[in-house]
Nucleic acid binder design. Sequence first.
DNA 1: CGAGAATTGGAGTGTCAACTCCAGAAAGAG
DNA 2: CTCTTTCTGGAGTTGACACTCCAATTCTCG
Lengths: 222, 222
Amino acid sequence: MNIDESPAAPAGTGAGPRLTRKGRATRDRIVAAAANLMFERGVAGTSTDDVRIAAGVSTSQIYHYFADKCALVRAVIAHQTQAVLEAQEPLLGNLDSLEALRAWRDLVVGIQRERECQGGCPIGSMASELSEVDNLARADLVVGFARWETPIRQGLQAMRDRGELTADADPEHLALATLSALQGGLLLTQLRRETAPLEAALDAMLGHIASYATTPSPAAPA
Amino acid sequence: MNIDESPAAPAGTGAGPRLTRKGRATRDRIVAAAANLMFERGVAGTSTDDVRIAAGVSTSQIYHYFADKCALVRAVIAHQTQAVLEAQEPLLGNLDSLEALRAWRDLVVGIQRERECQGGCPIGSMASELSEVDNLARADLVVGFARWETPIRQGLQAMRDRGELTADADPEHLALATLSALQGGLLLTQLRRETAPLEAALDAMLGHIASYATTPSPAAPA
DNA sequence: CGAGAATTGGAGTGTCAACTCCAGAAAGAG
DNA sequence: CTCTTTCTGGAGTTGACACTCCAATTCTCG
């Protein structure tokens, strides 16, 4: 792992040497295998040899495509960020109504239920494991979470612009809170092996957002 | 690390051989040193040799007091759970008003600010790192989080019993959501090195709880 | 005091992890 | 076709890590 920071190297973008079509394929195979293993057993619990076997490549190939285990980890972060965001599409891109938010909540809860509450959040768990250990990885993860937060904020902003939320609803604040609740809910759900914490966290958060709504669903008018 | 479960062994409770006063002292020294290191660098990032040096003991002493690294980890979990709960006392034991909740929020945010947002939650980060790897540790952490959740729930319950919260406020649900928001806020705060996520998450949660209040603070009466 | 238990020191062991090296096989450019 | 670059295989190196072993010392308790 790395501790210092280096401004260069676009990381996820395979910058260095040109890649053949075949080269690109094996590189992807390595990243995908590493991502799976690291999701299941953590970064520290995954050796390059494990990756080697899972990807069906030889030792030298890993070090041909990645300078370090650290570099491989950063590629995995990019891969998982993409995967997480895509798994929530197209809902994530249109979180501009309470119904959409509720559907998104159900999707997220459903995903956890499918995998029996194991593994937690692919990038959340890496954030926890790497924040104090690898500053470059941390920086990548900050960007990854920003890409997650943005569509949430934009959805809320759209609702407010449309007058569906009162003016004192702060989309930035609420988006950050929602993402936090999601992450904490995922953590406790992973720990307890049941979706109750995730559901409680998201329901509370959506309830709070709904309290800013200008057209109340069940309650009495002002 | 362990994967299987064994019902025996009370873990945190030093059961086996009797401990001399001196023995208890060195055992505590080992646990405290291990806790610090694991908080800073993670469980996987802390070797028994690191602990040995930090605690100023010899190799055999660690294995005299702990069967495994796994057993040491469980002792650290017990230690950190206690530390986390005590750090929030006496507020945590009396979370039965909105003011108390707000004071608690300020305390938690203040703690993070003091340590420059580093390290996250001592037991939350262990939960993330160990959930998929060590079932015994996971069980201990479940208990630890339950001990955290209980006073929150009891505070909310007291408010409801006293008629300060409406009947449709579910203390269990809200406590779980609050703990989730806290954990997620801590995770993102650790990642981004700023308290904004934690503040947003807790403020949203307290706002949501306040929406169940029967005596509104700033707004007009019913 | 003296026996037995608890505590300590530190050398040693086997394994596994990250990473290196070099030579050979394919692929693309001209 | 041939030169250059990319890709691949696998043996080898170095260090770290979890854990063992045994002998010496200190403590407790009757």
